[in-house]
Design a protein around this nucleic acid. Sequence first.
DNA 1: TCCGTTTATGAAAACGATTTCATTTTCTTG
DNA 2: CAAGAAAATGAAATCGTTTTCATAAACGGA
Lengths: 337, 337
Amino acid sequence: MSTIEDVAKLAGLSRTTVSRVINNHPYVSEDKRKLVIEAMNQLGYAPNSLARSLRSQKTDMIALLIPRIINPFFSKLVESIEMYASEHGYQLIICQTRYSSEKELNYMNLLKTKQVDGVILASIQNDWEVLEPFLDYGPIVLCNEFNERANVPSVMLNQMYGGYIATKHLLEQGHRRIAYCCGSTRSNVASHREIGFRKALSEYGIEFDEQYAFRDALHSEDGRRVFHQMMSLSESPTAVFTGSDEVAAGMISEAKKHGCKVPEELAVVGFDNQTITELMEPTITTVYQPVEKMAQKALEIMIEKIHSRTYRQREVYEFPLRLIIRESTVSNKLTDQ
Amino acid sequence: MSTIEDVAKLAGLSRTTVSRVINNHPYVSEDKRKLVIEAMNQLGYAPNSLARSLRSQKTDMIALLIPRIINPFFSKLVESIEMYASEHGYQLIICQTRYSSEKELNYMNLLKTKQVDGVILASIQNDWEVLEPFLDYGPIVLCNEFNERANVPSVMLNQMYGGYIATKHLLEQGHRRIAYCCGSTRSNVASHREIGFRKALSEYGIEFDEQYAFRDALHSEDGRRVFHQMMSLSESPTAVFTGSDEVAAGMISEAKKHGCKVPEELAVVGFDNQTITELMEPTITTVYQPVEKMAQKALEIMIEKIHSRTYRQREVYEFPLRLIIRESTVSNKLTDQ
DNA sequence: TCCGTTTATGAAAACGATTTCATTTTCTTG
DNA sequence: CAAGAAAATGAAATCGTTTTCATAAACGGA
């Protein structure tokens, strides 16, 4: 492998001049520039980015922590962030915590060991007090997550509003016994949705009924299970708000299998606007999340922080969600969009 | 930020000794070791991995090139590779080529600039002659892709067999007019499936009919479109082999919308065994791909190549696919699995 | 006690770039 | 044409490690 020294020798110049050519610095004459470029081509030279990074104290790498990439919401997020990162000359390191706090901590060390310029947290497993000290080593940006005590930028979606509009829609359709079916309580995402859910109910003078609450539903099989749990209640709900399209789809599939008509006997709202919402029959009413916008903003903030070098600033950027009404909540099959 | 020098000073020792402690080298006395560890803790010291990498000529990073991560097949692949990589102390850099040969080339430079120890190609956009020279800088492993002229290890699934068993299944159900509906012709994956498809047909003495071939179907909307194209033929097919569950789902959804019964009037086979195959009605017959196994093997080979430093060895590892029969090809609703 | 190992430690070179500083050459301008 | 500014170039320091080599101390066996 050839080094800058080899290029310099071949061109009959110094390392400094070669470096100037590489970095487009001024004050290098046209003829020497040509000499250098020719030498580089001849040797197939490419600058060693480790050496560059070591000297310039930046890696142009960003770590992105997510629970699991197989979740379509997160793959969409990764796709978007990677795109914008690449556009701005950054590489993305994928870190799957799989909901483990130790793995999270392990990945946070990428910041401490200077392997990345910053960390985007799209999942938080540790208490903030544990994560805070890492700010000594570089910026942290929260994306799609939120923490009361975190003194860093957060880019997020208004999940409360999402829970609110979805529930309000069900209420407007005349439903009064509405079940709540979301994922892991640990995440702030779910808890914010629940607040919105409760807010809508209370506006209609309805009390939140704990027997209608299911807080451990993540996948389609969970949807199937919860369907049966709901139906075995003395007064089963007539509508259900779910935290994911997959759960909604599982629930609808199971309902149909057991002769329960959707939406007539059970109205279902999903979350995410995944492909499956338009493939199921009935098509699924859902909440659209502007993931690209959030991703873009998160990266923009991250780059700004990397340059400004002030990491301990609390800022909150929130994007609104949008309800997409389809067949799973409205009997009139004409309604779509 | 503290350096090894700071630790050495605080402990009253030399950099060398501190380095020995960090790397668990022999020949350092117990009391000095303790001194060093205490100094490291006191300073919150973490070794700078750029400096380490520069010196030791390895980064413990691997680049993974894929077209788009949002495709469930690839997110599954990324999830698996990331897991095994992490277990072996490697970080994964995600590179989305978006089917662009320039982007691919750009990402290949990660190898040339020493930012990664190796590249796993799960997508090939350039001719092999263009990629070959990068072998001067590190190992390349093909994963789920294949190239006749590539003198590197390939870990792949037996796509030909996949196309074969799926088509044979349709033939066994009595179908004779079978459509072929796959994605981009550029990829070897699709072309191998076509070979298997043709082989099954010829075993039944049937000629491949070009009017039944659709080679640009990737997403559910494509499935919908192809459904109409098929139905507008004078003799429309009674069964169709598709290259993805999403396409199959789109096709089934559209068929149902237009009163075409699946599987009675149109039998459909998908590919991938995604979640959606069990959520649709009818559930979708599909081909299961052992992605985890392939991922694990690819990483194992990559690590071996990184250490052995012999990159130009052609080796092929192939994993078998498995047909999962569900309702979309068999009228008897009892059949599942 | 002597000598060859084994154990323990540090000084300095190396990894491959960028940046600072010094020096030389060329250009302006009065 | 003299002198100050601008342009062009290179030597050497620097980034933070690991590794090589040298040296010293402790050990073990005859």
